[in-house]
Write a protein that binds this DNA or RNA. Structure first.
Length: 476
DNA sequence: TTAGGGTTAG
């Protein structure tokens, strides 16, 4: 066992240019050597999740004339099945036959699983017949693999037929069998039947585990039956079965879909009281959900509570909260949060600044918005069109035309942002009460910076000219 | 950890 763990460390650390296999074979010339190390090398590769290297080592082991054990072959097969390397799986199986390595139940079941992943049922049946010819009787794992495959494909009749056959052949169904069948029933919306099957399973002396409860809870959640989900959750806790992150996640999602975020929130608080750890993802989910429902203060108080349990929001959650506060015009609270982010070494990004600047400009605090824009530029985050537009519109609204114009030039020159919308907002604001000469001058200056007027600009200019004319101002 | 079960769509 010690040798295996050393080998695992070795294959993980070694550079791709070093040939571990070669080194091990070379060793055989100098010392008292057991070829079983090659067997262990294959296992080490599989354990280190280096399946391709494991497969190569298998081939080379065979080439140098050593016969790996059936267990080693199964390790490798397991790795290859998980990666769906179909051809290589069959190559291993054929090689086993050539070398006289007898496949065991594990081998057959993994290959059954491999065939089940494929669509072709005939292939599975042919393989099973061959297995039986070789004297292997399908065991509970074989049946479960097949039943699960049928259930996933919606072929419930075939699945239940096998379930009956199992009894006839004295192979007793276990938790896996029932969970697979319940899952199949739930997927078809047959919740009642699934729950009945659950009761039958308990009646037959099997104790449901987290996965079997989760399957049923998930079925109810998908069907919008949150009351049933919740009582199953209490039942499982009562029976000493711990809900896991999957259980909580699926119930949260169920409530989320129903738009019942507050119920989700209450449930989380209850689970916390029971002493079940709530995962970071669940907290993220609730935070984002509350923000998107425009309940930034509920999100904030949740944050305060869960921060005491060590929860730290990431930048996306912070941004959701800031955006939500900004949407409701709570600029001050949003700024406080931004300061908190910085203290926690989370650097505000474009999303953060955009929300804050837009909000400040909206509530006539364009000067503060501009200072934030300067801060963002200094920290290496270039402004985008939305930031530019927010500031120009803000200043126009506050009648600080001079500022609006100079910023428009700044964005064009420094960041090549030519936003005709902002330009038009400026012309429109100016045309309200400027004389014709001022308007024409602005057009000239803007053209020098690189702005081209569009039809809307012309409309505003003409409007301005007409206004100037009709109020008796002298034409330029 | 030599095999099999529970979310996630468009």
């Amino acid at each position: 066992m010690k040798l295996l763990s050393e080998l695992i460390e070795m294959v993980k650390d070694v550079s791709p240019n070093d040939d571990v296999f070669e080194s091990l074979v070379l060793c055989s010339e100098d010392c008292n050597w057991d070829p079983v190390v090659l067997d262990m090398l294959i296992k080490a590769y599989v354990k280190a999740n280096m399946i391709r290297e494991g497969f190569r080592a298998f081939r080379r082991t065979v080439e140098v004339g050593f016969v790996p054990s059936v267990i080693t072959c199964n390790w490798l097969l397991n790795g290859l099945v998980k990666l769906s390397r179909v051809d290589q799986c069959w190559e291993v199986y054929e090689e086993m036959g050539r070398l006289g390595i007898h496949p065991n139940a594990y081998t057959f079941n993994m290959l059954t699983h491999l065939l089940c992943k494929d669509e072709d049922v005939d292939k599975v049946n042919a393989f099973l017949e061959k297995m039986e010819e070789e004297g292997f009787d399908p065991d509970v794992v074989t049946y479960n693999t097949l039943i699960n495959s049928y259930c996933r494909k919606g072929r419930l009749e075939d699945a239940f037929y096998l379930y009956k056959i199992m009894y006839r052949r004295y192979v007793l169904p276990d938790l896996f069998t029932y969970t697979a069948l319940m899952n199949g029933l739930c997927k078809e919306g047959k919740l009642k039947e699934a729950h009945q099957l659950f009761h039958r399973m308990v009646h037959r002396g099997l104790s449901p585990d987290t996965k079997s409860y989760n399957t049923l809870i998930c079925g109810y959640c998908k069907d919008g039956k949150m009351q049933e989900s919740r009582s199953l959750l209490y039942e499982m806790i009562g029976n000493g079965v711990r809900p896991d992150s999957f259980t909580c996640g699926i119930i949260m999602e169920g409530y989320g879909k129903e738009g019942r975020l507050l119920s989700a929130l209450n449930l989380v608080a209850e689970l916390e009281r029971f002493g079940f750890p709530i995962s970071h993802d669940i907290y993220d989910y609730l935070m984002v959900g509350l923000c998107q429902e425009d309940r930034p203060f509920a999100a904030k108080s949740l944050l305060e509570r869960i921060s005491q349990h060590g929860y730290l929001p990431d930048i996306d959650v912070y941004n959701e909260l800031i955006e939500s506060l900004c949407k409701c015009d709570y600029a001050e609270e949003a700024l406080v949060l931004k300061a908190k982010m910085v203290i926690q070494n989370i650097k505000p990004n474009l999303v953060t600044y955009r929300a804050l600047i837009s909000c400040l400009c909206k509530i006539n605090r364009s000067v503060d918005g501009e200072s934030l824009m300067e801060e963002m530029v200094k920290s290496g985050v270039p402004p985008d069109l939305a930031v530019c537009r927010a500031l120009i519109n803000g200043y126009c609204k506050e009648r600080d035309i001079y500022k609006a114009e100079s910023l428009l030039g700044f964005f064009a020159k420094e960041f090549q942002i030519f936003d005709t919308g902002s330009y038009n907002a400026l012309v429109k604001a100016l045309s309200e009460n400027a004389d014709v000469a001022t308007l024409i001058d602005l057009q000239d200056r803007m053209q020098k910076v690189g702005f081209a007027p569009n039809s809307l600009t012309c409309k505003f200019v003409i409007h301005g000219l007409w206004k100037a004319y009709s109020t008796g101002q002298k034409e330029a």
